[in-house]
């Protein structure tokens, strides 16, 4: 924690973890200087992973997008990256990020991306757990996300992490809203989860937080 910071997960946050496949990773917040790291990480994603993440074919990240993805205020927008030692220095294996809904500050849109080589190692779940903790510290009570209905991997991850999460199909995509551990009451104006018992979901996420640490 930085002097004066009220958050455990802030710019000074560093955490080392060992993934299920034995890879050692360093977790830290994404910074403006990470543009190249991000660009290279994007290059590591298969066409399928890019499609599932961006809902469309995407061949590159534009400069404007790199700015949007790296220049974050750390309160309303935050991204957590996982780095590992590669043959050419540190390389990004995954990123989890949220952006607070300006109209409903207790809700943030969240997304997790893991490079193809690191998928299935538990990294996505770990990043999501830490992201949830960072969000909770910042007064965010709910995560909202959207994934393509054909994205079986994310579907499985949600089923494991939040078996009671409320999912609503929207044609080719599925909307999901999950209350974060320790959240106080339902999210104001939540379209999906107003009537879901938050306690059980909170327990599951708490379980995840413990599992990942």
């Amino acid at each position: 924690m930085m002097p004066g910071s009220t958050y455990r997960i802030d710019a000074s946050y560093r955490e080392e973890a060992t993934l299920a496949n034995g890879t050692r990773v360093l977790l830290r917040l994404v910074q403006p200087g990470d543009r190249e790291l991000l660009r290279r990480g994007f290059g590591q994603l298969s066409d399928t992973s890019r499609y599932l993440r961006f809902f469309a074919t995407k061949t590159e990240l534009t400069e404007a997008e790199l700015t949007q993805l790296t220049e974050l205020d750390g309160v309303h927008q935050l991204a957590l990256g996982a780095l590992a030692e590669g043959p050419d220095g540190m390389e990004g294996l995954g990123i989890a990020r949220f952006a607070r809904d300006p109209a409903t500050p207790a809700i943030a849109e969240a997304a997790v991306t893991v490079t193809d080589t690191a998928q299935g190692s538990g990294l996505g779940t770990l990043l999501l757990a830490r992201l949830a903790e960072a969000a909770r510290e910042r007064g965010i009570a709910w995560f909202r996300g959207e994934f393509l209905a054909e994205n079986e991997r994310v579907r499985a991850m949600i089923a494991e992490a939040c078996p009671d999460a409320r999912l609503v199909a929207r044609g080719e995509s599925i909307l999901v809203e999950v209350p974060l551990a320790g959240a106080s009451g339902p999210a104001p104006g939540s379209r999906l989860l107003g009537h879901v018992a938050g306690g059980r979901l909170a327990l599951r996420l708490r379980h995840l937080l413990l599992k990942g640490s």
């Binding site: 961006f54 809902f55 993805l69 952006a99 995509s173």
Partner: peptide, 13 residues
């Protein structure tokens, strides 16, 4: 530009 979510997902809908 294409309509996108805060997470840069293309909003075909």
């Amino acid at each position: 530009e294409l309509p996108k979510s805060a997470m840069l997902k293309i909003l075909r809908r």
